[in-house]
Amino acid sequence: MSVQGRIGRAGGTKIKRALGVQAALEWAFRVEKAQLELPLPQDVTEEGFGFGLEYVLLQRAALGCKIDGGQHKIGGYTHEDAEVIAATVAGLPDSLGGKRMAIRVAELARAGLTPDWLPGAVSRCVPVDIKRNRHGDRAVSVVVGTERVLLRGKWRSVEVRACPVTFKPDPGQIEAARRGYQAWWCALGWVRDGLIAGGMLREVGVTPAMPKAAPWEQR
């Protein structure tokens, strides 16, 4: 079902729309155009541990007074559940990346993307440079020294050449991409747990579903 699906009713009881945390984030930031606000509370410093759910609850209370205005969504109304989700993302603790991770989570959700963990990337040994001509491709070699050799009864100096190689993609690049994915995944887990435990959403029900923790290990 689309994240824009309507809330239904059964027997007069409102049925919450069930969304995994990634879908809920995409609904909030991409569909509802919620904005990520990162104000610093007076009692929290830059070296603190994020805003925590207490601050999110304060944001929630404030939202209850001004949700009719649609304060962020130009020409429309931003659903208050989307504002709550955005406020929760803003509360990511420093141990999970803090403000920088909050911005990354919001940007990816707004674009409907998952972090690029370089699917299928395998580091391979390849020549540093390739020379192309009509006969095909040839690895470029460089002089690494000279040797004296006896050739047709005469001693001659000859070049010793070698082909410089490298590994592409760099193993460190692959590792960094997958660390970045796992950091994002952990941040989503924190947001999911906070939304479920906080019980602040009125029409959206966040489920325990999560993206794969390490998709590169799946067969």
Rank of each mutant, 00 (worst) to 15 (best):
R6F: 15
I7M: 00
A10P: 01
T13I: 14
K16Y: 04
G20R: 01
E26C: 13
W27H: 13
E32T: 10
K33T: 10
A34V: 04
A34L: 06
L38S: 02
P41Y: 07
Q42R: 15
V44N: 00
E46K: 00
E46A: 06
E46P: 04
E46L: 08
E47R: 02
F49T: 04
G50Q: 07
L53V: 01
Q59F: 06
R60K: 00
C65G: 07
K66H: 09
Q71L: 14
K73N: 11
G75Y: 10
Y77W: 15
T78M: 04
H79A: 14
E80F: 03
E80T: 02
A82I: 02
I85K: 07
I85D: 04
A86G: 11
A86Y: 09
A86K: 07
T88H: 00
A90F: 11
A90S: 15
P93D: 11
S95L: 08
V105G: 11
E107F: 01
A109W: 12
A109C: 14
A109K: 12
A111W: 08
T114C: 10
P115L: 08
W117G: 09
W117H: 15
P119F: 06
G120Y: 00
A121V: 13
A121W: 12
V122N: 06
V122F: 05
S123M: 04
D129L: 05
D129G: 05
K131L: 13
R132T: 14
R132N: 09
H135C: 11
G136L: 05
R138E: 15
A139S: 09
A139G: 12
V140T: 13
V144C: 09
G145Q: 09
G145C: 10
G145F: 07
T146L: 00
L151N: 06
W155G: 00
S157M: 08
S157R: 08
V158D: 07
R161N: 01
C163S: 04
V165C: 04
T166H: 08
T166C: 14
K168P: 03
E175W: 02
A176K: 12
R178M: 02
G180S: 13
G180I: 03
W185T: 05
W185A: 03
G189T: 04
W190Q: 01
W190M: 06
R192V: 01
D193K: 11
D193V: 03
I196H: 05
L201D: 01
R202D: 05
E203H: 12
M210Y: 09
A213H: 12
Q218S: 15
Q218Y: 10
Q218L: 15
R219P: 15
